[in-house]
Amino acid sequence: MIEIKNLTKSFNNNLVWEDVTFRIDDGDTIAVIGRSGCGKSVLLKHINALLYPDSGEVLIDGENIHALDYVSQRKLRQKFGILFQGSALFDSINTFENVAFPLRYFTKLSESEISDKVMQALTYVNLEGAAKKETSELSGGMRKRVGLARAIILEPKYIMYDEPTSGLDPKTADEINELITAMAERLNITSIVITHDMHSVLQVADKVAFLDEKKLSWFGTLQEMKNSEHPRLVDFITASEYQIKSNQYT
């Protein structure tokens, strides 16, 4: 369970957002939505302490991650898997090694065990055949999936997706969305999805957090969102209406 309490952050006196408070229950999939530049990714980086807030706290299973020393902080971070916007694959090593990377450093598994686990993870993301490929040979969708495989390889309790569908064609985006849902169900992972793609939200989210006007503007379940009359939220959703509808009809 992740609790975010009264979080405030500014960069060089520019307020990003203030007083953000919400809770992520285990097993839920939370979508954090908002317009570009509203600080969605900044929020994500606060959750695993890549960034520090000006005030407020983030409790991971009751532990304030920002108050911990660096070593315990890193231990706590291993409860998270992150799929970065640009996948953040290590380009000096190939696909297999990218996925195996955390295993090599954080476990004492034998080479065959590592191989088994990596192939299993790659199978989850439907990339069995790409193990020997260099990362530069992969397409955008494939990179996302390799990133996902790497994110889940240490069997984290939480997984965070930073714009998982951005820059992908609708079909591939759909596949990624399916994977997110599948992961949540199959591995019983709590997911935090940062996105502005309403289609993705409708497909994967249980709850929605709407960041707007430098604060947490709205928070509720997916069903509540669909019925919400919050003007800016409705505005944000309807702006994506055409895309959603056209997707539904195909």
Partner: peptide, 18 residues
Amino acid sequence: GTMRVSEQIDALESMGFN
């Protein structure tokens, strides 16, 4: 620099690497 801007450093950190 490349690792920084392509979030590879963040990825390392988030995996629990120093």
